[in-house]
Design a protein around this nucleic acid. Sequence first.
DNA 1: CAGATATTTCGATCATATTGGAAATATGGA
DNA 2: TCCATATTTCCAATATGATCGAAATATCTG
Lengths: 113, 113
Amino acid sequence: MESKSAVNMLSALGHDGRLAIFRLLVKAGPVGIAAGDIARTLDVLPNSLSANLNVLSHAALVTSRREGRSIIYSADYGAMSGLLGFLMEDCCNGAPEVCAPLGAIVAKAGACC
Amino acid sequence: MESKSAVNMLSALGHDGRLAIFRLLVKAGPVGIAAGDIARTLDVLPNSLSANLNVLSHAALVTSRREGRSIIYSADYGAMSGLLGFLMEDCCNGAPEVCAPLGAIVAKAGACC
DNA sequence: CAGATATTTCGATCATATTGGAAATATGGA
DNA sequence: TCCATATTTCCAATATGATCGAAATATCTG
């Protein structure tokens, strides 16, 4: 993961509406959600949603596919892993002692995955 | 971690200069780095640096302490853990199967921590 | 083909963020 | 006290981003 990609992802997620969209897609899993359903669930205008989905898409955080009249968006888990890895790698380099607080998180993730 | 805090952190990190500052501080560890040294290392103007440190500070990603004439900045590892936890928790909720790619990352973190 | 649904694109306005120069504040040393 | 160093604050110019209505495009159905 390049630093520039990480900046793009972080700034894409650093927005109220887009973080909500991304969380929704992450929870939906690989099945994804149609743009219209996202708009209804989050109560946002279709054109605003489209613009925000475009930002997330350009940041490579989501992918899309057409199904009939709808366009289905899904979270890109590989990209998310890459971002987490980038931040974690950054954390562990040169200062292993600071990773202690991460133990709980890793444990939590371990319980899930 | 509230969603609003996460948005603040993510948008603070979603900036070229600020991500560079934060990475530098994370690598420096609890000892921290003086503002002037950060400015020289990253070759940025002192006022721009100050503004960016202020953003990171308001997002609770860094802390500062005065030492003589210098002000030493350090990364807040607790905040970083919280952010990673927020994203991971978000990932695991409702879709455990998508966590597979995270296995490698957890393993990597485990090797370090 | 005509109509309905789904989504995107366009265009304008408004708000917010970034940048850099210059001055102000705070600390330590002679 | 006076001066040098360190950092922040102030200010204005510029750039970027968000929002919304309206129109355009694409797909399905009758």
